[in-house]
């Protein structure tokens, strides 16, 4: 049986703007296996949200997607709009960053969750309603039968995010995309939501694409890690390798630059410079202007993602010299 549920091949999502072509995602190759959590790390503008939107084909104008996105071997980019609609929310569900704006304020919570269920499953109203209450209970909303009649503004941020998760999981998706799902939450609430996602993953057996810039969250939740920088995949490996023995200067630098609870440091090793713009990214390796190992070759030749050991790929021209 094929274990890979999603495979992204040569994905290019370009935005054709007046200022030029913004290569938000450029030649991305990724794989997500069944029951696996893939952590997608990247800063603002690295293309992580665009990747998620590309998978669901929700990229706004003037964006254009090329490449292949194989979900169970079928290319989502070749599906009709109608077929896509049953994939979205049905097989692949997404939790958005901002629970305040992604719920409709004029419908009750119960209404919004049952809409998702009715669209994808053939059930009568009573069953739908039972499902809604079950889901709300599962995500830990007390007094679910009453609260489902409440409107989004009657919920706190953490509760709203739970509602989003309930909605996303209501059709038992095979892949859950969580785009900065806990970024706006307080740490104690974040802890609860992460715990919830872990439990639900066990229960439903879904795979998760976890998009975040918080390395702590990634370390805790993921099995594998993919690092994006300026639209390019820089490194791909399992979570322990990523944090213990990264083999790309960007991830290495990132890990050294963050203040952490578990390590004492007098001074942080800051990464020089700023995140590049996408319309005119640096020549050669996109990270080279900020890389402490950069040599002349780095601004001339664009590195390819190569497998340096089984299951560990890195896109650095000097990876052999630096890390071996």
């Amino acid at each position: 049986m094929n274990k890979t549920i999603l495979q992204i091949k040569d994905l290019k999502t370009y935005f054709y703007t007046d200022a030029g072509i913004a290569k938000a995602v450029d030649e991305l190759n990724l794989k997500i296996e069944r029951k696996e959590t893939l952590g997608l790390i990247g800063e603002s503008g690295s293309g992580k949200t665009v990747t998620a939107l590309s998978i669901l084909r929700l990229v706004p104008f003037p964006g254009r997607i090329t490449g292949e996105i194989l979900f169970h071997g079928e290319n989502l980019l070749e599906k009709s709009e109608e077929e896509m609609r049953s994939v979205r929310g049905g097989n692949i569900a997404m939790i958005f960053q901002d629970p305040m704006t992604s719920l409709n304020p004029v419908y009750t919570i119960g209404n919004q969750i049952s809409e998702a269920i009715e669209l994808h499953q053939d059930l009568d109203r009573l069953e739908v309603n039972k499902n809604v209450i079950d889901m709300l209970k599962k995500v830990g909303i007390p007094d679910a039968a009453t609260r489902q009649r409440d409107y989004p503004h009657q919920f706190s941020g953490g509760m709203r995010q739970r509602v989003m998760i309930a909605m996303a999981l209501s059709c038992n998706p095979e892949l859950l995309i969580a785009d900065e799902a806990t970024t706006n939450l307080d740490v104690t609430v974040q802890a609860e939501v992460l715990e919830l996602m872990k439990n639900l993953k066990e229960e439903f057996g879904s795979s998760i694409l976890l998009i975040t810039h918080d390395l702590g969250v990634v370390a805790e939740m993921s099995d594998k890690v993919a690092v994006l920088y300026a639209g390019k995949l820089m490194e791909f490996c399992d979570v322990e390798t990523a944090f213990m023995a990264p083999q790309h200067p960007y991830l290495e630098a990132l890990l050294e630059s963050i203040p952490r609870l578990d390590v004492d440091k007098e001074r942080l090793d800051a990464i020089a410079g700023t995140v590049p713009e996408l319309v005119n990214p640096p020549q050669g390796c996109r990270f080279h202007p900020r890389c402490k190992y950069a040599k002349e070759i780095c601004n001339k030749q664009e590195p390819q993602l190569i497998e340096i050991e089984p299951g560990h790929s890195s896109a650095c021209l000097r990876v052999d010299e630096i890390y071996h």
Partner: peptide
């Protein structure tokens, strides 16, 4: 205790 630590171990 709620802060996620960037160390999978």
């Amino acid at each position: 205790s709620a802060i996620p630590v960037p160390n999978p171990k």
